[in-house]
Amino acid sequence: MQQVADVKPTAPTQAISERTFADLLTPLIEPGFRLALAMLHDAQAAEDAVQEASFTAWRKLDRMRDPGRLRPWFLGVVANQCRNARRRKWVADVSLGLPERLSVVSDEEERSLRGADLRRAVARLRHQDRLVVVLYFYLDMPLEDIAAVAGSSVGAMRARLYRSIRKLRPDLDLQEALG
């Protein structure tokens, strides 16, 4: 599948100043970090991925087709960095620091267990499925932007999202899940 960061240049390279680049990039770091964290389940690895994505973004900024869609394009670069990072170090079975079972469970502990269970389920998804789930549910992005991040069509993203929900919550109604 073609990634946004891999698109061919369609406009001549235009050098921009460090200040302009910093102004463009700063509001994208926080969502980029959240995406990386949800994808990698490791705060340090997530920060590294965003850092590398920032430099990659500067080098490939002239390849961006639509300057108005900088956010999905940058998140696409982050997603590629996450995929490369997982290739270098497999972190799917990351320990979340929580016991599998607790003998006495309070409400707070039960909420934590459910959260850990959900994170573990998301971590077990394939890269593209996990990306769609994180972007849609955690970063609250519309399918149009998700398609831009993944370099795919809206229909394909919708189908992938449905399949991923089924994997996460087989007993959950789709409309309820999407609500």
């Binding site: 459910r114 850990a116 959900l118 998301v122 994180v134 955690y138 959950l172 309820e176």
Partner: peptide
């Protein structure tokens, strides 16, 4: 909702 659950699950870590 699933959205809230996912938000909660990732925000807490």
């Amino acid at each position: 909702s699933l959205r809230s659950q996912i938000h909660s699950a990732f925000d807490e870590v």
